[in-house]
Design a protein around this nucleic acid. Structure first.
Lengths: 122, 122
DNA sequence: GGTTATTGATTACACCTGTAGTCGGAGCGT
DNA sequence: ACGCTCCGACTACAGGTGTAATCAATAACC
């Protein structure tokens, strides 16, 4: 459940969150080319993710089909919560304030946020 | 500049962001008790942070005075940006949407955000 | 049927991280 | 001046991570 997913492992999870189940070679083909990983590396990561329990695999003939056991939304919630806890004392509003102040929110983002917050407060 | 600060190291940085400059033993005294660290551990972390260039030290008689070389706000901006890049494709609005949807924003947070966004868009 | 290609399992290895211990020199007490 | 103490520098060591190579079983090819 709560094993940490490393940066490299996340790239593999993203592939499987986008499409699953997949075979190991399918995953290799879909990992962003920029990573420059060999197929062995991807295989290792799949193995570690299995060991961490965040992937499951079922036999499909001579190979395995891999599939996430946790939802991306849950992972994202977990990681967002960790960041908010570590850097903002557990309060989310200061994070947004910070993003805004450090210019990481575009006008479009702000417009979107305004609509979002309005709806949420309704 | 851009060396990563680990979780344990962050606890030391927080002490020095709260108050600086400090001697090593001052830092030891101020690290959250819950960590249960020996003074050696804290010293090691200070050394690693020096090596990473995020701390500087000047001699003060028999000992050193340590002081951050990067601002907490810059670090926070960097880490927030990383999270947003990794999990939300670089767009911050979905983060906020996510925090809201997963119930991590209180009514007070939402009110605060609404005011914040209104001001920012003015 | 023996050889080769695939695929998963096991092993490797260096660097980072958490968590310290040891060594050596500079004052301090007497 | 001598040993005790405090501090910083160096060393240690296991577990995680990035990045792979090797091994073994099986399937496919000729």
């Amino acid at each position: 459940m709560s094993e940490r997913i490393s940066e490299a492992e996340l790239a593999v999870m993203e592939v499987l969150w986008a499409e699953a189940p997949l075979t190991a070679s399918d995953v290799v083909d879909r990992v962003p080319i920029g990573r420059g990983w060999s197929d062995r590396t991807v295989k290792t990561l799949l193995g570690r993710l299995l060991a961490k329990g965040v992937l499951a695999h079922v036999e499909e003939g001579r190979r395995y089909l891999y599939r996430p056991t946790i939802a991306r939304a849950d992972y994202v919630a977990h990681e967002s919560g960790r960041l908010v806890d570590r850097l903002f004392g557990g309060r989310a509003a200061p994070l947004v304030a910070h993003l805004a102040e450090s210019g990481q929110l575009s006008d479009a983002d702000l417009a979107e946020l305004q609509a979002l917050v309005r709806d949420l407060r309704a």
